[in-house]
Structures are given as structure tokens and as C-alpha cells.
């Protein structure tokens, strides 16, 4: 479903990804590990089309993706959870933030509202609709961010350090949400416990290359 072929990316002279190739299947549940600054986030941003690789090809959902409009097509289908929830939640109220994606996908306000309450309900966030996003706690912010992603009905998820800064209880909630979901995902994480609970395959990014260390 996602195929990266000989992707090279560098910041100035520092090579981050070095002729990297990677194939991801729709239902796969993968953890991506690696030291700080090794390019895990960069790799995910390349998949989403937020960064352009210097060379290599990206094939996502059966089509080569090059231009901005190519990537605009896939962004509704691949849900991306950012590291910092404050970047993701920009609307004042939860309902507006969760509705933002569905509205962009062309739903009517009425349909979007329904989608929001469905999604919040499925995450046990009933009654959060009118809460003010910047007044939520860190854990609540992360769960609402998750709702904003899931409300778009993605076919695959990419989660960038979803457990950083979360307490044990919220981590468990996240594990539960992922277990209940039928979606495949790629998770960037340093949390060995979380990885063991959620992932069937572990990839390590090192020296600009990917190696499978566990399945």
C-alpha cells in the first residue's frame, strides 16, 4: 500500500535517509524505533508529502505521488497524529476541531456533527464537544487529537510518539483504542512497553537505512 523506493533525504550535508526502501501493507501494525534525530519523523513527513525527498519514488495507494495535489488525495486516507497536540488542535472547541477534517473532506455541517459525536463516543469522550481545546489536560489533548484523526475515517494511521508525556492510564486507553481498531498503523515510539503491546513488527531506522529487528 505504501511503497518507498530508494528515498534519499538530507538536511544540508547531513544525510538523514540514505537510499531507503520500505513496503507497508494495509493491515500491518508496525513500530518504528531509532535514536533521537535519526529521521523517524522526517520519514513520516515524507510519506505524508510534507517534505520532499531529494531522490526516490513514493507509491501510495497504487499510484506514484509527486505533486502537492497527489498528496492532498492521500492525506484523508492516512491519519497522522502529531507529536505535539497543541499543533494538531487549533480550533477553540473540541467539536470544531474534530469537525475540521470531515468538513474538509466535503461533509455537510450536519453530517460532520454526527461524525464528531460518533467519534467522540467511540473514544469515551462523550460531552467533550464544547470543551475548550487549550484548557484540556495533556492526556485529554492527545485523545482529542486521536479523535480528530479518526473522524476522517482513515485507512491507515501514522502516530508520532503518541505516548510521550502521557500518564499510565491514558497510555492504556491508547493501547485499548488501537487494539479495538481494525486499522493498520505505523507508530514512532521510544516506549518499549507500549510497542510490545501494540505492534507486531519492529523496524529500526539507523544510519539512514531501515532494518527489521523483530516480527
Amino acid at each position: 500500500m505504501i511503497h518507498l523506493i530508494d528515498i534519499t533525504f538530507s538536511y544540508g550535508k547531513k544525510i538523514i535517509l540514505d537510499n531507503l526502501s520500505l513496503d507497508i501493507c494495509p493491515q500491518e501494525r508496525i513500530a518504528l524505533v531509532g535514536s533521537n534525530g535519526c529521521g523517524k519523523t522526517t520519514l513520516c513527513h515524507i510519506i505524508m508529502g510534507l517534505l520532499k525527498p531529494q531522490s526516490g519514488e513514493l507509491h501510495i495507494f497504487g499510484k506514484q505521488r509527486v505533486t502537492e495535489s497527489d498528496f492532498a488525495e492521500i492525506r484523508g486516507k492516512i491519519g497522522f497524529l502529531f507529536q505535539d497536540s497543541d499543533d494538531q488542535l487549533f480550533c477553540p472547541t473540541v467539536i470544531e476541531d474534530v469537525a475540521f477534517g470531515p468538513l474538509n473532506l466535503g461533509l455537510t455541517p450536519e453530517q460532520a456533527r454526527r461524525k464528531v459525536s460518533q467519534t467522540l463516543k467511540s473514544l469515551d469522550l462523550n460531552g467533550f464537544e464544547d470543551r475548550i481545546t487549550y484548557r484540556l489536560s495533556g492526556g485529554e489533548k492527545r485523545l482529542v487529537s486521536m479523535a480528530t484523526v479518526l473522524a476522517m475515517q482513515p485507512e491507515f494511521l501514522i502516530l508520532d510518539e503518541p505516548t510521550s508525556g502521557l500518564d499510565e492510564k491514558t497510555c492504556d486507553r491508547l493501547v485499548q483504542i488501537l487494539e479495538q481498531s481494525v486499522l493498520g498503523y505505523l507508530i514512532i515510539s521510544h516506549d518499549a512497553n507500549f510497542i510490545a503491546q501494540t505492534s507486531k513488527k519492529v523496524l529500526r531506522l539507523q544510519g539512514g537505512k531501515i532494518e527489521t529487528i523483530e516480527t
Partner: peptide, 24 residues
């Protein structure tokens, strides 16, 4: 930096330069 991350996050949720209004 944050503004760049926000616009990226918005793009990932299908933002194409137009805000749709939920409340009328």
C-alpha cells in the same frame, strides 16, 4: 517553527485554504 507544524497538521487533515463553518 510552530506555525509550520500547525500548517502541516492542517494539511494532513485535508486543509486546502478554506475554512468551513460549522455553526450558522
Amino acid at each position: 517553527d510552530r506555525s509550520k507544524r500547525i500548517v502541516n497538521a492542517m494539511k494532513c487533515r485535508g486543509f486546502k485554504g478554506k475554512f468551513y463553518i460549522l455553526h450558522h
